[in-house]
Design a protein around this nucleic acid. Structure first.
Length: 815
DNA sequence: GAGTTTGAAACT
DNA sequence: CAGTTTCAAACTC
């Protein structure tokens, strides 16, 4: 699938406290322009002119970036939005921004009242070649990790304000040290043969003016970059194919468009120039490849809201007042991020109730004051209910003024129903003159009581689309807590006690997250990973939920007694099949069983081997029992298996470049026909990269990419041939490679991947490649040190995060 | 709804 | 890093 990433149609450019909307004038230089370079980057629109005076006096050394990577030819800007699709109000945004800019800068930068919309947690994006761009401002903390699949490198950068209030970025990976007063802009060109998975998390701290909060609220979207602005474009991809019938899309998007403003921008500009150009000429061919529901992903959604555009259309076609727009962030919690599905050739988020719930939860987390209430208008009633509650209460907790509250209520009144009483209570509390903290405590207490009562009545809050935690002792600051693990704050419907996973305890939450991430940098990554290009044929439907058949649990389960037939099993719970990464016993996972094969090869007699059926194609020397096949146990995704193999084969290579490994060491070598595309993919991806361990491939990314294959699945999914990827299925990275194929033969996962750890003699792991199961490999990779934190790593925590002492990960495998 | 089971997470 | 403990969800009655 030819895919490139572009950025949203209209860049919102913030510089020095002003909002600048990048228009077509910057097409050839898709950079979020720092103020000082604006005149260079753009041809000078009215907007720019008007806001120029507001620009920060501190330029961002973009030139450094450009010196290093800039290739305008390689990053032709693309504006995915079709002007014709923009309604008048949207089309007027730039001018409007120009009008608002100065005003906003005055009202938003000088205040003293602090509001802390949470834009915490991750947005996981897998992107191919292109231009990664960030633009943000006002953040107190911003961390960004980039997993370079191709180079097997992990970079973590952190951004924080220094003592002088300057935003500071340090990154050795990008050879960058930047400071800026109000905003930072960063871009990183992604080579075409590279593929990244980026994880961004941030906390945004905004200060409001002494002006009306609703004013701030209204303007907020213009100050926050669209976070979820990773866009992919694909030739021939019809918009309707992606987003559904245009009519529906328009309706939905019109309604939701401005409620998805996010705290930062993460933009990929299409690196495939040809595609970019084509897409530019045909902006309707937009492939959205991010974590938002497709219906939210039209670029319109990313266009900042404006004061003028105060009327939208609800999902029910009713006008909805948006003048106090809430702005949920698209920074999705991991579980939602991992929950995408495909429509056509395109990945779109899973809209199952659970996903929606996750989304709603993420909204609450990421934008605690910007309720999900608007978003809720596009959810199922259950989800609306949830979002309404969360958003509403959080909005109030966040010291939104009564005007906003009332307006917010208006927005969601159609779904208030039995929550109305609560809302009133919240409003009352909100309007009271209690300190925020006290108010929160009070509300929290009441809320807890209510939700417990509610839960008692309904049996489970989940029936309300509100599946939340019930933590008693973890304080919701450990991964035990589902909310915390999902990267969202606990909300009203949680039944937790002593909960610290609330906006009020931001620091505590962050500390806890750092601590956990220090053990496992990817602890908050999606547990379920899937191919971003998973085709609809790969969807396993059951009930209302759709799970990509190629999706797998990142780390695998470890079930012993449940046989992966109960929700104890994380794979089962996630409705994905088990894979090599699983250490389960007696796997009967209906979504796909792990393949258990008894290998009778000499030296491995008696060892239970978890085999990849697709390896049959790769390694004919290995024996797979016919019974296993008959038993339908060859259910794993070939790609997934390959992932396991790759992972298996990496660390023991002893840091040697895979490409330098002679093919003679590989039985597969010399017979390229036996090498699966995935193999090629990964092997090519493992091209030596200076300074980076060749195996340091992101398991998540790999998994995501590798799972493109069509794993045979039960439940009636399409079952393509093992190990065979159609040309169209071949990831671009497979086609675009600068590494000679022979380098691929560096290792054969098959030949050495033998037995699971528990059957292995201690200490013998290194003697043959893979003895490690992928689960453990995942952990290994997760614990893999990041790029030499080139950066001073002001955040020692962050540094430690990636230096990873997480060697514990596989410990559970021994259970 | 209390008690039990289960497996992930955390700890040692 | 294997073994153990803690934890909370899932499950059973």
């Amino acid at each position: 699938m030819t895919q490139c990433f572009t950025h949203l149609a209209r860049e919102k450019i913030e510089a020095g406290g002003s909002v600048v909307y990048g228009e077509s004038e910057s097409r050839l230089k898709p950079i979020i322009v720092p103020c000082s370079q604006k005149e260079v980057q753009s041809s000078g629109s009215d907007v720019n002119e008007q806001t120029e005076s507001q620009l920060s006096p501190m330029p961002i050394p973009f030139s450094q970036w450009e010196d290093q990577w800039h290739s305008s030819a390689g990053c032709v800007d693309e504006y995915l939005i079709d002007p014709e699709e923009l309604d008048d109000s949207l089309n007027s945004l730039p001018a409007q921004a120009a009008r608002d800019g100065p005003h906003l800068s005055q009202s938003c930068f000088t205040g003293t009242q602090e509001i802390i919309p949470k834009l915490e947690d991750a947005n996981h994006v897998v992107a191919e070649a292109g231009m990664l761009k960030f633009s943000w401002q006002y953040e107190k903390k911003f961390s960004y990790s980039l997993l370079n699949v191709a180079e097997s490198a992990v970079d973590t950068m952190s951004f924080e304000r220094d003592a002088n209030g300057f935003l500071e970025l340090n990154s050795s990976k990008f050879n960058c040290h930047m400071k800026a007063s109000n905003s930072l802009n960063l871009q990183s060109r992604v080579p075409q043969d590279k593929q990244y998975m980026a994880q961004v998390s941030q906390n945004v701290m905004l200060q409001t003016s002494d002006g009306p909060l609703n004013e701030w609220d209204r303007n907020y979207p213009q100050y926050l970059e669209s976070f979820d602005s990773v866009e992919a474009c694909e030739h021939g991809a019809e918009r309707s194919k992606i987003l559904g019938p245009a009519e529906d899309v328009d309706r939905d998007q019109r309604a939701i468009r401005r409620h998805l403003q996010f705290g930062a921008t993460m933009v990929w500009n299409g690196g495939a120039t040809t595609s970019s150009i084509d897409n530019q000429s045909n902006p309707t061919k937009v492939v959205v490849n991010s974590m938002l529901p497709a219906r939210f992903r039209n670029l319109k959604d990313l266009v900042p809201s404006s004061q003028n555009e105060s009327i939208g259309i609800s999902s029910r076609g009713k006008p909805v007042s948006y003048h106090n727009t809430v702005t949920p962030t698209s920074s999705c919690p991991s579980e939602f991020v991992g929950s995408t599905r495909n429509v056509g050739d395109l990945p779109v988020p899973d809209f199952t109730p659970s996903s929606l719930s996750s989304m709603a939860r993420s909204v609450s987390m990421h934008s605690n004051m910007f309720a999900s209430k608007n978003l809720a208008g596009y959810m199922s009633s259950q989800e609306k209910h949830l979002a309404t509650n969360e958003g509403q209460n959080l909005a109030n907790y966040s010291n939104i003024n009564s005007v906003t509250t009332i307006a917010a209520k208006t927005n969601v009144h159609t779904h208030m129903d039995d929550d109305e009483e609560e809302t009133h209570a919240v409003e009352a509390a909100t309007s009271a003159s209690l300190p925020v903290a006290d108010r929160f405590e009070e509300l929290n207490k009441e809320s807890s009581q209510r939700k417990r009562e509610k839960k008692r009545v309904t049996g489970t809050s989940e029936s309300e689309g509100c599946k939340r935690c019930n933590c008693k002792r973890s304080k919701c600051l450990k991964l035990y807590c589902e909310c915390f693990a999902a990267g969202v704050y606990c909300v009203d419907c949680c039944a937790c006690t002593e909960c610290f996973n609330k906006p009020e305890y931001e620091e505590t939450v962050l500390d806890a997250r750092h601590q956990i991430q220090s053990r496992n940098p990817l602890a908050f990554a999606p547990k379920i990973v899937k191919s971003v290009t998973d085709s609809p044929a790969n969807l396993v439907e059951e009930g209302n939920q759709t799970t990509p058949s190629s999706a797998r649990h990142k780390r695998g389960c470890n079930c012993k007694k449940s046989k992966c037939l109960k929700k104890y099993c994380e794979c089962f719970q996630a409705r994905v099949g088990c894979s090599d990464g699983c250490r389960c016993e007696g796997c009967n996972n209906p979504f796909g069983q792990k393949t258990a094969i008894l290998l009778h090869n000499a030296g491995f007699t008696g060892a239970e081997r978890w085999e990849n059926p697709c390896h049959q194609k790769l390694d004919t020397k290995e024996t797979v029992t016919a019974d296993s096949i008959k038993a339908g146990r060859m259910q794993c995704s070939p790609n997934w298996k390959e992932l396991a193999n790759i992972i298996h084969g990496t660390p023991p290579v002893s840091h040697q470049h895979l490409g330098s490994v002679t093919s003679s060491s590989n039985p597969d070598a010399g017979n390229s026909s036996n090498v699966s595309p995935i193999d090629l993919h990964c092997r090519r991806s493992y091209q030596p990269s200076v300074g980076y361990p060749p195996w340091s491939c992101s398991p998540l990314s790999l998994a995501t990419e590798l799972s493109e294959g069509m794993p045979p699945q039960e439940l009636g999914c399409h079952i393509p041939p093992y190990g065979i990827l159609k040309d169209g299925d071949t990831p671009e990275i497979l086609r675009v490679t600068s590494t000679p194929p022979k380098a691929v033969k560096a290792y054969s996962p098959n030949k050495k991947r033998i037995s699971p750890p528990q059957h292995q003699p201690q200490g013998s792991r290194s003697s043959y490649l893979p003895s490690l199961r992928s689960g453990r490999k995942f952990k290994i990779l997760q614990s893999m040190p990041s790029f030499p934190p080139l950066t001073p790593c002001s955040k020692s925590k962050d540094c430690s995060d990636v230096t990873g002492k997480d060697h514990r990960g596989g410990s559970t495998s021994s259970q």
